[in-house]
Design a protein around this nucleic acid. Structure first.
Lengths: 210, 210, 210, 210
DNA sequence: CATGAATGAGCATTCATTCAT
DNA sequence: GATGAATGAATGCTCATTCAT
């Protein structure tokens, strides 16, 4: 998308750029996850790539660029995943269930990326942080819209939709940030079921059933 | 507690050690938060302290020690804060309300420390990570006990108490990790009220009121 | 030889490596001799080289490596010098004279290296010390073989060939270790003549002439 | 002796000075031998002493002073040992035998000190090196006198007495510098016997017997 | 006379980045 | 477009030495 443009390159062939950057992202993600951004030297990354350190600098212009590239990759995956969500039929309960579980699945599939970004986001300059955060906000917006819809139709109770949306998104992230301990007693599927149930009970008015 | 002993010192006066370390923790916390652990040099920290770089090394024996000192500080504050929680009267609902809101307050007061530890925990060696994580687990345990109590007395519905306890703890952390955006539309007090309400709705059986 | 391999390099051109290392050895030898290994900082060495401190680290991976490089240089020179010694004709007396004087010449030419290694060998880790010491033992072995040969043929008297060989080697080293005082009253040539004479008198049976 | 004066102290009581310095020398010698002068920190030394680091500086004024103190200790021991040597009767052969074997015994007893000084002498400033070297020269002088005596009386052949004296002294040192390998195949007693024999054969005219 | 605390100067090493070829 | 070599600027840490009490 637009962001891709933001990273400067001296290379003319855009396909080559895309290919090389994909290699870089792949290698970097693994290394950043294993040892963290700072302990990973740009030399380490280059050595694991099929090209040279100086060549690497032809496709990125700084180490920080690489982290942003990784972030972009995650954002694209998320966007793709959420786009597939049916824009939510007319039933807010079903729409919420669907969006939440789908988002949990995405988080699960990319739990390492998610964790990485929580840890290293601050390394990016403010404007790039914004890009990532906005992408995150997009998800919250999806939840918020569904909740507002539910409130309007009386299926959900009167509550702070924005806060509830944030809570939902954050609880999905919990699987990424705490999976090391959670997976000792729940599977991802049970996690999704339990949390969906829990969240919906918080959303509906007392006495109602969904 | 016992951990304090773990950090070596060449200084004999324990009061002086405590005082200097408090200064170090204070300075370091701010710098780590602003620029992250790795971008903060030990020189930077020393320059913001009323003593010399070499002197700093009389109170800590490595940069990593400083991070652990910050972690210890948070753990102690948390422990102190939670100890004050009445061991939960016989009413699980009140006990939960009390524990959760109190924990949120602690998180709020130390939101920067909390955020810092989420970001930089991996810098610590495995055994020190364990110490921090165990301290975190202690909080979850408090929640779990209350929930189990509620389930036993029929005030709460049958659910995975462990997962619910983790969710509660994690939602409290949300205030620390997302406060930059949350505080734009909720105060800490409303946050606590809303989340308490939300969580309790998830805990009680349908149709019940608390 | 094989040892050369032991020192890691990021540089691919082996000729360049050899050339730069030669420069390093040259500079380092002088500085180590003047101020000792420990008082010589790696910065000092780099400043006397036609390249940068960071560049230096592309050819060596530690300060200790430099000392080992110096040691290797001496070992190679010694090996080259001794290889030229005719494997000793059938006359043990001539063979000894030849080997001893040739070795003295080598020691003389590299007296600074020899002295340096006596002083700083302990800096090297045990395994590298072994390499150097074994190289030294090779010389002693040459002397021992000649002496044993002499004893067998009756040209030399019955004596502890091993000890005598050590004495010969050590007396050659004397020129390196004590040259500051010896050269005030003997030249290297007279030193060799006198010591050869002295040693041979100790080797032959009483009454014999060589 | 006079040198003792050379090391400044702020302490008035000379006995205390002597006692403390003896402790320092004792501790330092062991540490210098085990890890070398440079790897031994003055803090290490102080910690092994029954007094404080700052106190240590009341008896010595620099780390180098300590090394000189160790050197002085060895010089005194040597002087004491050699003084006991009968000033050599009228028989040069016996005198030489006696002096050489006695010196070897001293070297043997203090082989570690001897080795230490060979390694670390350069650390001392030139004038202090001179003091140590002169003390060494004193031994050579003893040998030289005996040899000159032998030449004059015709017991020894015409040779460079100074060089021979140096060789004798140096061969004694060999036991200290190479004992790690020598002791694998000779005892100190056999070493002395063999070397005495060897040296005397070099000293006497051909055909003579002693 | 003793000592606890402090510090200035330095040291080996690393790393993101650039440039000549 | 690719790459080998080079480097400026830091960084974490140590240590001999001093001084106030």
């Amino acid at each position: 998308m637009a962001q891709q443009k933001k990273i400067r390159t001296t290379i003319k062939d855009p396909d080559l750029v895309a290919q090389r950057r994909a290699e870089i992202v792949d290698v970097a993600t693994h290394m950043f996850l294993e040892q963290g951004f700072h302990k990973t030297s740009i030399r380490d990354i280059a050595e694991a790539c099929p090209f040279n350190l100086a060549s690497l600098y032809m496709y990125v212009s700084s180490k920080e660029d690489i982290l942003f590239l990784v972030a972009q990759h995650l954002m694209e995956e998320k966007a793709r995943g959420l786009a597939e969500v049916a824009p939510g039929g007319d039933d807010p309960v079903e729409a919420f269930k669907d969006a939440f579980s789908r988002y949990c699945q995405i988080v699960h599939r990319h739990r390492q990326h998610v964790k990485l970004l929580y840890r290293e986001l601050d390394v990016l300059p403010k404007d790039r942080q914004q890009v990532v955060l906005r992408s995150d906000a997009a998800v919250t917006d999806v939840f918020e819209k569904i909740i507002l819809d539910g409130i309007r139709t009386g299926v959900f109770r009167q509550l702070d939709a924005r806060l509830a949306a944030h809570s939902a998104g954050f609880l999905a992230h919990m699987w990424a940030l705490k999976s090391w301990t959670l997976k000792r007693f729940v599977t991802i599927d049970r996690f999704i079921d339990e949390q969906t149930d829990f969240l919906l009970r918080g959303l509906v008015p007392e006495g109602s059933r969904w």
